[in-house]
């Protein structure tokens, strides 16, 4: 398994990386952890002229908390996030980070790479919808901050401009009364999820104040199921509300038949995972510790 020849450039700073990308132009691709890009190159599904390796740029792998603001550097690996104090107190992050692929992938793969890949099977883009995350980007025209909502525009296509890279992810730490869960259904560790659902609920006095429901591996992009959220918001949770939310999540999804299963099968899974994630999120919102892991078959 050998990629086609390409030129390799290692950037030591974000500015240098942007400069390299601008100079090379089309044909250049950014590599962070390489866990999405390298398999594609090795299978020769993509042949590019240049790789700009941003993986060793210092200071992009930090998790910082400022008040209730959280910022995760784009180069933070899944393993680092899973092991962080942040994930210890925001369990939906642990659900996601600890269940991505296998330990080798988690040790190399980064949150920024996962978001930038625009791959609907990646876990982070779906999950970040539940936290209303912002994507911090930097390009030749300076920095800008984009909403995760709409960031992935189409299959493998994001809102990033040419020569623009992701530098970090920002979101507000869920407050008291807020709980979330991310549930993926997978065949085995090296496989992408068949489908996944992330839910974050803020519950006050038994009523859902705000809800976020996001679906991964359920269409061409990660999908925020807003109708499902609407079914939950302002309600106290019962089987009826949860069932309607699950139905709405299914309605928002757009799965296809593939080797992971038929679209009908995936719809049934989405309904199930939505209910499961809501259940766990609710318990967590009430302060209960709930261990959650992805389902394997």
């Amino acid at each position: 398994m050998y990629p086609a020849p390409f030129d390799y450039h290692r950037a030591n700073s974000v500015d240098e990386a942007i400069g390299m990308l601008s100079d090379i132009g089309e044909g250049a691709r950014v590599m962070a952890g390489g866990q999405s890009l390298l398999p594609v190159l090795k299978m020769r599904f993509d042949e590019l002229t240049d790789i700009v390796d941003i993986g060793r740029i210092p200071d992009l792998n930090q998790i910082e908390e400022n008040g209730n603001g959280v910022s995760i550097g784009a180069l933070t690996t899944h393993s680092c996030i899973a092991a962080s104090a942040l994930a210890g107190s925001v369990p939906i992050l642990l659900d996601c980070a600890s269940g991505i692929a296998d330990v080798q992938v988690r040790s190399r793969g980064t949150i920024g790479g996962s978001v930038a890949s625009g791959d609907p099977s990646c876990d982070w883009p779906a999950l970040l919808h539940t936290l209303d995350a912002e994507i911090q980007c930097q390009g030749p025209n300076g920095t800008r901050t984009l909403d995760i909502n709409g960031f992935v525009e189409d299959l493998y296509q994001t809102a990033l401009q040419p020569s623009e890279i992701i530098t970090g992810i920002r979101f507000k730490r869920p407050g008291a009364g807020s709980g979330g869960a991310y549930c993926a259904f997978k065949r085995c560790a090296p496989a992408y999820p068949t489908t996944s659902v992330g839910v974050q609920l803020t519950i006050t006095d038994g009523q859902v104040e705000s809800a976020r429901v996001a679906l991964g591996s359920s269409g061409l992009t990660p999908i925020r199921a807003q109708q499902a959220e609407a079914e939950l918001e302002g309600q106290s949770l019962g089987a009826g509300q949860i069932g309607r939310a699950a139905d709405a999540a299914v309605a928002a999804s757009d799965p296809v038949d593939d080797q992971r299963g038929s679209a009908d099968f995936k719809r049934q899974l989405i309904a199930h995972l939505t209910k499961r994630a809501i259940g766990i999120a609710e318990r967590r919102a009430s302060g209960e510790q709930v261990v959650n892991s992805h389902e394997y078959y």
């Binding site: 299978m43 065949r187 085995c188 560790a189 090296p190 496989a191 992408y192 080797q259 394997y296 078959y297």
Partner: peptide, 23 residues
Amino acid sequence: NYDETGNLLTATFSDYCPITSMN
């Protein structure tokens, strides 16, 4: 799994999914 043209649809470990200790 092959499609009707004889194209193998499970030609990587990610698709063929060999058993691991997880299963």
